[in-house]
Computed example of a mutant assay.
Amino acid sequence: MASQEIERLASALARLPGLGPRSARRAVLWLVKHRERALPELVEALAGVRENLSECPQCGNVDTHSPCGICADPRRDPRSLCVVEEVSDLWALDRARLFTGRYHVLGGRLSALEGVRPEDLNITGLLARVEEGGIDEVVLAMNATLEGQTTAHYLAERLEAFPVRVTQLAHGLPVGGELDYLDEGTLAQALRARRPV
Rank of each mutant, 00 (worst) to 15 (best):
M1I: 14
A2H: 13
A2D: 13
S3Q: 09
Q4P: 01
Q4I: 15
E5I: 12
I6K: 10
E7F: 02
S11K: 13
S11E: 12
A12G: 02
L13C: 04
A14L: 08
R15M: 08
L16M: 15
L19N: 05
L19M: 14
A24E: 05
A24I: 07
R25G: 10
R25M: 12
R26Q: 12
R26M: 03
R26A: 06
A27I: 14
V28R: 02
K33T: 13
K33E: 15
L39C: 10
P40Y: 06
V43N: 06
V43L: 14
E44G: 13
E55R: 13
Q58K: 11
C59Y: 02
G60L: 00
T64C: 12
T64P: 08
S66K: 07
P67N: 11
P67G: 08
C68Q: 00
C68P: 01
C68K: 00
I70F: 04
C71H: 05
C71N: 05
P74N: 10
R76Y: 13
R76N: 09
D77G: 06
D77L: 06
V83E: 01
V84I: 06
E85G: 01
E86W: 01
S88L: 12
D89C: 02
D89W: 01
W91Y: 10
A92Q: 11
L93W: 04
L93I: 12
D94M: 07
D94W: 08
R97V: 06
F99D: 03
T100V: 14
G101Y: 01
G101E: 04
H104K: 04
H104D: 01
V105G: 04
A112C: 06
G115Y: 06
R117L: 11
P118K: 04
P118S: 06
P118I: 09
D120W: 06
D120Y: 08
L121M: 10
L121F: 04
T124A: 15
G125C: 09
G125P: 00
L127H: 11
A128W: 05
A128I: 04
R129W: 14
E131V: 07
E132G: 08
I135H: 04
E137H: 07
L140Y: 02
L140C: 04
A141I: 03
M142F: 06
M142G: 13
N143M: 03
N143D: 11
N143F: 02
A144T: 11
L146G: 05
A152C: 09
L155V: 09
L155F: 08
R158E: 14
E160A: 14
R165C: 02
T167N: 09
Q168P: 00
Q168M: 09
A170E: 11
A170N: 08
L173W: 05
L173Y: 12
P174T: 09
V175S: 15
G177Q: 07
D180G: 14
Y181L: 09
L182H: 13
L182A: 15
G185I: 05
L191H: 08
L191W: 11
R194A: 12
R195H: 13
